[in-house]
Structure formats: C-alpha cells, structure tokens
Design a protein around this nucleic acid. Sequence first.
RNA 1: GCGGUUAUGGUGAAGUGGUUAACACACCGGAUUGUGGUUCCGGCACGCGUGGGUUCGAUCCCCACUAACCGCCCCA
Length: 430
Amino acid sequence: MKEETRLLIQIPRGTYDVLPDESAVWQKIEETARKVCALFNYKEIRTPLFESTDLFQRGVGDTTDIVQKEMYNFKDRGDRSLTLRPEGTASVVRAFVEHKLYGLPNQPAKVYYIGPMFRYERPQSGRTRQFTQFGIEALGSQDPSIDAEVIALAMTFYQSLGLKKLKLVLNSLGDPESREAHRNALIAHFKPSIGEFCEDCQNRLEKNPLRILDCKKDHNHPLMETAPSIIDYLTDSARDYFSHVKEMLDEMGITYELDPTLVRGLDYYNHTTFEIMGSSKGAITTLTGGGRYNGLVSELGGPETPGVGFALSIERLLLALEVENISLQSEGALDCFISSIGDEAGKKASVILYELRQAGLRADKDYMDRKVKAQFKQADRDHAKFVIVIGDEELEQQKAVLKNMADGTQEQVAFVSLADFIKSKISSGV
RNA sequence: GCGGUUAUGGUGAAGUGGUUAACACACCGGAUUGUGGUUCCGGCACGCGUGGGUUCGAUCCCCACUAACCGCCCCA
C-alpha cells in the first residue's frame, strides 16, 4: 500500500485534465468557435504541435521572453532541435509559405486553429504550461477592413457565448519607420531621469523602452503621463491606415478604447494591435491578443505578404464565463435506462440495450449488480427519460414494464416493440 | 527565475503531542414482496502530501523535498 503511494504518478506541472463532467463545456466552446469561423468564412488549418526551434526563434523573435525562457525544446533522435509550439501564428505562416498558399486564387487566405500551446512558465490563475488557443489569421490583404473583420470575429465569438463585460483596447504601432522614431523619442524622454525608475525599467530603456509604459511599480511617475505617444510618431500612411480601421469599427458599432501604451509581447506586430479584456478575479484580464504582422511572411522565407490575426485562450475564456456566471452545460439526458432483476433478466437486458442503441436511442443499464431501487437512483442521476424494468414475470410474458420518469406512469410494452415505442414517445415530445 | 499561503477519506472541511481522527455532502446498504428525486437508520480514513529529525510517543513541533493555489516578471 505504501509502495503504491510512493509510485503514484502525477500530472505534469502546469497541466490539467478535462474530466468527463467538464468536457461538454469545452465541446460547446469549440463548436461555437467553428460556427463563427464558418460565418466569417475562415477555414480550419491543423499544424503540428512541434516545429523546428528555428521557426519560433525567427518568427516570434529572439528577444522575446517566450523564446528566451519559455520554450519547451528538445532534441529528437536525429539530433534535430524541435520545440513544442508556444503560439500558433508562426506555424500557420510556415504552412502558408511551405505549401505556397499565396499562389491560390482565394486571397486572402483566411484560416483558424484550435489547439494546445506550450510555454514553460510558473502556473497561476489563467496561466498553465499547456493551454489552449483559438486563433485566426488572414494572410494576403492589407485592407483595413480585414483588421476590423478579425476584431469583429473575436467579439462575435465571445458574444455568442454570452459574455457581456468585454473591453476592446486598440492601438497602432505603425510601420517600422514610425516605431523607430517613437523609440528614439522615448529614450530621449526617460534617459535623463531613468535613475528614479525601478530596476526593470532601467533595463528596459535600451532593450524595449515601450515596455516602461507598462510598468506597474512606476505607474505614478510624472514622466509617464508626459511620455511621447506612438500616435504622434505615426507616419502619414500609418496614421491613415489606423483611422480607416477605426472608422470601420465605428460603423460596425464595435466600441473600443484607444490605448497608446498597448504593446504586444511578440516582435512581429506592427500597425493595428488590440486586446480584448474581460472581467476577472485574478490579475490577468487579457482574453485575446492580436494584431497585424506585415513582415512575418517574408521573414519566414515567403513573398512579401501582409497578415493579421488574433489568438485567444480558452482557459481564460472559461475564467471569464465563471465571473459572469455563465453556464454552458447542456444536459446529457439518457433516453432509457434498463433495470433488471436476476441473471436471466440481466442477460435479456443486455440484448435489449443493444437493440435500443442500434435504433438510435441513448441507453444504459446497471453493471454494479445493484438492487432495483439503486438502479432507479442511477437512472435518475443519468436523467433517464424512461426506465425499462425486466424481471421473471416480464421474461415469461415477453413484455417489459416501461416507466416514464417525468410523470411516473407505467405501461407494459412487448420486448420487440420497445425501441419503436420509446422513439415515438420521445418524438411526440414526452 | 523570485515571493506569499496551503497540503487530513470520493468531495468540503473540524481536530489533538498519548486508547476508537468530528461533522456535512456524495456513495453503498436497510426501513415486509421488484421502482427514482423526501424522511429515518446503518456502513464508509490501520490513516492525516513525501522523506527525515525532536520525543517515551506525532496527523498535530522542526527541517528538506514535492505539489497546488495566489502574486511578481511576462503573456493567451
């Protein structure tokens, strides 16, 4: 006994099991995602869970935390360096380039994916080492209306699940030219007084001054408010693009908040970036992150191709649903439960059970050798609409007792006509 | 990677340095013959995360480890 305890193998850190009572919610969410994607004409793409490590180093960016300290990488037996995907966009772009999807007549290529991602992090609320993302990508168009479409799809998805407390936050990082000008302005702004900031911010000054604006410790420093905003450094064309996106959203009636400090963590973003925030108990409220990434396809060896997309976490969605008290449970009611008394009746029950199932009825029976009373309890737990009772008398007469669990009425039905009888009862809306 | 909190049966949880580890829920069984969601009765941890130590004796004291939860960093 003690040995067993010692040998108990536990689930890996930062992972979790979706148990039988919980899986219906996941199925509901995934089904909703697929439906919404169909409405917007996005098709599913399925890529491997692991890829060449190089893909993420180049795609996500060498300086990002994801690449520097969060990747699950390993060598395979052929000494190749592989990595469990930390996000989906790099893989989608890789597939787009590798299969030359840019050559297809249907442009832009509009795809979605749902699946697990892996990041080696300290688990906490809304953060696990294996987590699930639903994401979409639209590759090949730089029409601002596709930026708006991507955002609209995410909002539609959440709304179809009943979420109300959503906040869309919008920003533009502009083109490379805009970003460089803004970066220089930020460094010039903070450098003289950088000593007054926290250690993290001092490190950020040269590496990524944009991040200083995100800092929670130095949030109240006077220089924060007066910091140069990216908006003021956008080139004319970048500004023009952004206002088109906003205009589309306005006309669609999608409300948003502008946040010039919104910086996304992956290197490939430019122009439109957005986050959708939800109400949450914990510190993490970001449900979705997304934006435009015009340089990524060429960075990964494809032709110069614009792209835009988002990724959202199902785990965080679940948290948001909980906060808003939304239950997606659909009852998995059993059509019929067979209760039997005695060995002979038990055998007959198995046969009838099989016949019911062949006839398309969701049915089950007792396998625990329980008493009739306990079998009824089981039927009740399974929300069975009908219970069939088979004992010696029923065997003799070749007729079963059929009980309607909703109103408690019983009647005798011949074994051979049980399936048809129950089906007609159910279809007539018992 | 850093910090805080916690770790008792299927679940939620009480508890004490020393014979039988509360209670509730769930589950199983019973309350006259083969029937559910109510009621009543009974059963259900040779064990208190793992490994050490202190002690005559530890689930309760100390140490380490592991894990979970929460926060920081960063992100979905």
